[in-house]
Every structure is written in C-alpha cells, then in structure tokens.
Amino acid sequence: MLRDEIVALLPQLRRFAYGLAGSVPDGDDLVQATCERAIANLEKWEKGTRLDSWMYRIAQNLHFNALRDGKTRARHLAVIGSESQWSLDGEKQQEDRFALTAVRRFIDRLPEEQRIVLLLICVEGRSYREVSQITGLPVGTVTSRLGRARSAMRGYLEEEGAEANTDGSPDGGIENGKMENGR
C-alpha cells in the first residue's frame, strides 16, 4: 500500500530535510510540507517510478521555494528597516492610510479572476505554479491574468495621479519637494 511506503520513507526523508533546512524544527516543517504536497498530488506520481526520488524532489523544491521567498522577504524587510527612525508623523500616517485605501479601492475594482491571482501572488507570495494548482488554471492563464491586473493597476495609478494634479501642473503644485504655499 502506498501509505505504508510513504511512512517507511519518513526516516530517510527527515534526514534529508534536516540536511537541507539546517535545523530539526525547520526539517520537521519541511517533511510535513513534503508529505502534504505528495498526498495532495499522488495522481502525479507514476507507478513503477521511485517514490523516494519523487518525494525528495518535492522536499528540494519546497526548500528552494522557501529560500527564495525568505530572500525576497529579507529584501523587503531591509527596505522597511532602512528608515533611520520610526516616528509617529501624523502626515506620514495619513499618506499611508490614503495609499492603503487607494490600493483597496483598486483591488475591489478588479474582476474576480484577476483579483484572486493578484492576491495569491502579490500578497500571499505564492509562485505562479502554486497559484496554478490552487486555482486549477494553466500557468499561462495565471501569468496573463496577473499581467492584466498589473496593467490595470498602472492605469489606475495614472488616473489617481491625474486626479491629484488639480492645479494643472504636472507635479500637482509640488516643486522641489515643497508645496506652492511654502510648506
């Protein structure tokens, strides 16, 4: 029975995962994720091929994805942490709230199929392949829907920028970082 074969592979898989992850807790998480992925995709395993090789490949791919995601998050956190001092600047908070509200309005305007893809990839950090598996869409369809969502976002941001320029000047009354009234 396939279940028994998977259970029999756990000690080997754990050693492999510990080696990849570098720690027992991270290795255990990797083993669990590997088993979950394998069970969810059993129909993709070809009978007569090596189950251990297939599961090792799943573990390796998950590990590489986690490394890539970790590097991406570290870059984002470095940018966030690069501000020399966190402050309670009321004007900055208002600008941030305005930006968040604008992003929410934009996302709400997207067609459902584009919204799902955009949220899974850009907010949840899922890969195109994962989104393809989650939604049941081909990767090419995921890519095109994300492209259309990003294009719509550019158009929306340009539209919002045009509305912000109420005085008709290209910079909305801002020159050299100062408002026209000297602020």
Rank of each mutant, 00 (worst) to 15 (best):
G140N: 15
P111M: 09
S151Y: 04
G136T: 11
S151K: 01
Y18V: 09
G27E: 06
R154P: 08
A78H: 12
R3A: 15
R104V: 03
S84H: 13
A102P: 02
D89R: 07
S151R: 00
Y156T: 02
A17P: 12
Q12S: 00
L9V: 09
V123D: 11
Q32T: 05
A17H: 05
I39L: 14
E91T: 00
E175N: 14
S127W: 10
L13R: 08
N181T: 09
R73P: 09
G182Q: 05
N165Q: 15
S169Y: 15
G161C: 15
G125D: 13
W54R: 08
G168M: 07
D69Y: 10
S151M: 06
R148S: 08
L77F: 01
A164T: 03
G19A: 08
Q12I: 06
G125Y: 01
R57M: 01
E112K: 11
P111L: 09
E112N: 06
I174Y: 10
R129I: 00
S23D: 07
Y156F: 10
R148D: 14
A74S: 03
L119K: 01
L2K: 12
F106H: 10
T141R: 12
S127I: 08
W54P: 01
G27F: 03
T143A: 12
R150V: 05
M55R: 05
T101R: 09
N61P: 07
V79S: 13
G125S: 00
W45L: 04
R105I: 07
L77T: 14
R104M: 09
L120G: 11
G27R: 02
Y156M: 06
C122I: 06
I58T: 00
M55D: 00
G27H: 02
S23V: 11
I174V: 13
T135F: 04
S84F: 15
G22N: 07
P25V: 01
L146G: 08
R57W: 15
S127C: 05
P25Y: 12
D96N: 01
Q12F: 13
S53V: 03
A162W: 14
G48T: 08
N65D: 14
L20F: 06
F98D: 00
M153I: 05
R129T: 13
C35S: 04
V142H: 03
D28G: 08
L2F: 12
V139D: 06
I174R: 05
E36W: 07
G140P: 10
F98T: 05
G177I: 00
L146F: 12
L146P: 02
